[in-house]
């Protein structure tokens, strides 16, 4: 699936939670719990993306011309959002990752988490995912 198709899939998945914050956050928490764990060897300071409050660990590698991301967070809601980012960007070509505008975040009503004042490291995470894609592009 292309990035746009996955974004559309997530938008439809979240449509049933419109106006119900509780279901939406329960879903995010479930997504967080289901996120495949990052290999513990990468859960070190070297791979950390520091938000003010919650931490995110991100590992990126190039596999068959595509970028594969794994990640973890110490906060479960952040982890749920991290799971969404990975679903959209992992296993995609570097160029497509660099061009992704991640518009679905706004559509599903999680834009507030992109504000720097939420300080959960999500913006830094997307930035890091793109930087890694750019760096790995040369090695493909």
């Amino acid at each position: 699936m292309s990035i746009a198709e996955i974004e559309q899939e997530i938008i439809e998945e979240f449509e049933m939670f419109v106006d119900d914050w509780e279901l939406k956050y329960e879903h995010l928490i479930e997504l967080g719990k289901s996120l495949p764990m990052i290999n513990p060897v990468y859960k070190t300071d070297e791979y950390i993306i520091k938000g003010c409050q919650s931490k995110v660990w991100l590992h990126s590698e190039a596999v068959d011309g595509k970028i594969v991301y794994t990640a973890d967070s110490d906060a479960i809601i952040t982890k749920g959002m991290v799971a969404l980012m990975i679903r959209v960007l992992s296993n995609q070509a570097p160029d497509d990752i660099l061009n992704a505008n991640m518009g679905f975040i706004d559509v599903i009503g999680l834009k507030e988490h992109l504000s720097p004042t939420r300080a959960n490291g999500l913006i830094s995470m997307i930035k890091q995912m793109k930087l890694d894609a750019l760096a790995l592009q040369g090695k493909i």
């Binding site: 509780e22 409050q53 479960i76 809601i77």
Partner: peptide, 22 residues
């Protein structure tokens, strides 16, 4: 073992403003 950020986020959704973090 809940992260304070998670607790604070869910309280905010219910109209309760608290501070979380260090």
């Amino acid at each position: 073992n809940a992260h304070p950020f998670d607790v604070g986020t869910l309280l905010d959704k219910q109209g309760v403003a608290v501070r979380t973090g260090h």
